[in-house]
Design a protein around this nucleic acid. Sequence first.
RNA 1: GCUCCUGUAGCUCAGUUGGUUAGAGCAGUCGACUCAUAAUCGAUUGGUCAAGUGUUCAAGUCACUUCGGGAGCACCA
Length: 516
Amino acid sequence: MVFYITTPLFYVNDLPHIGSAYPTIACDFFAGHMLQRGEEVAFLTGTDEHGQKIEKAAKEASKTPIEHCDYIADEFQKLWEILGINYDYFVRTSNQEHYKFVTEFFKKVEANGDIYKGKYNGLYCSHCEDFWLEKDLKEDGDKLLCPTHKKPVEEYQQENYFFALTKYQDRLEKYINDNPDFISPDYRKNEVMGWIKDGLRDFPISRANLDWGIPIEGSDQVTYVWFDALLGYISGLGTDKEKYWNDKSKVVHIIGKDILRFHAVYWPAMLMSAGYPLPHRVFGHGFLTKDGMKMGKTLGNIIDPVALSEKYGAEALRFYLLRDIVFGRDGDYTDEGFIERLNSDLANNLGNLLNRALKLINKYNDGIIPDLSSKQNFDSLHQQFIGEIDKLNPYFALEAVFKMLDATNVEINSVEPWRALKIEASNEAALLSLVDALNACKVAAVYLAPLTPQLSKQIFINLGIYQASDLEKLERQDLLQNYLGFDQINKSIAGIKVLEEPVGIFQRLEKAPVAA
RNA sequence: GCUCCUGUAGCUCAGUUGGUUAGAGCAGUCGACUCAUAAUCGAUUGGUCAAGUGUUCAAGUCACUUCGGGAGCACCA
């Protein structure tokens, strides 16, 4: 099967932050997992670069819009490098290919009779440079005031191109009902159904008085930023559009909950109008808070992905975000929680288990993994893991892996091989408990490989399955399919000589992470 | 204001279509072990399941009411 996975296209009004890193890490994990399953995967991320806000941000930085965008887009790519994101495509909505595609798309929608000129009436605050709805404004006698600036708003009329969204209300509702997985989590699907039930309205897809956008032929207007941004998911594929955006491939959009409406309502309607296949899944993830509070520059409580990566490694951050937070719900970051999670799972549960078993094998069996038949069976774990990933629940998928490791720790403690082997170095039950422990670590390493590749590699190296040099400079797909693939799960490790001096796969964290 | 969701141990949450003494993880306490990255394992403390009324042989599980918490309400990336 062909999977096409996308992050949101990040708006370049600001430098990348943890909120952009979160879905991108999740996508990277999903994409890698699908590679392990032997699927064909395309993974796209990119930047959304048009609109008034960008024009303004550029002006404030004394740059042209494109200069500003070049700079921010570059910063995004740098962050993805630091975080080890293996995207296949990086789309920028300012590039020529995109302009061409949007223009063609616009024409298709127009030819289908879904674009018309209409008047947009708005209440405009010149201080916000934005429109307000009457119900959100404060009343002051007979005047309406902007709630942030407390200044009167002006009535403003603009002739815009509108998209006939209302025409698609029924088809949209049907599509969502016929494809129960289209919008998830289910509580967000309820929201969308509520919106549709309340009735949709046509929306303007053009802007006047704005230069930084894609020109609409035969007019002096440019496209509304969302009308163009969403199309980046297709235009960004370049010459691979038909290969990944077709009736058979599975298109998965991972987005933030704030932009659900655009992806779950506008986007499918636009695609229907232009005659394109619809995506299969739109997943709206939650937001991160810090110490229970919304993050913000003014509060100064920012989680800095670069600082965390520099101090603890990108893999620690990658693991933490997907393991500690239920994907879809809001998650709260605390320094204590971060350290606790990593220590508990990676250092204690997994790392320590591997280490103790390796030491015993070295001490009592010359480092050779004995050939003993085991009752271990990972079938149900495998089903569970895959099932949870299919539901885009990395939290529960990872939980299953660590429950398996918990059980392995229980088992080795009940057998007490250190005691039995001291009496009789060939005690089979004792040796078997060690083989099972090592094998469990190997299996965990396989499932974690798309998320924490270095850690997984080191487990395999410690086990003696590979030399460090075997795993250098491998392409990701090669690594995940041919070295750390699912066929490793049931492959015997009997007879392998483990590393004499095991390398710690994850050192316990002692101090509080860097403050923002 | 309207719509929807939610209120279970100190914290985070499970509790299937209502069915026996309400569960897990973490934290706390006590203990075991000593192979191991002061890790691991066991035991244990702790809840009138927000409150009330009702339906029922039986309600954490359904209905209603009150109180508390959250989300959404369109051009927001």
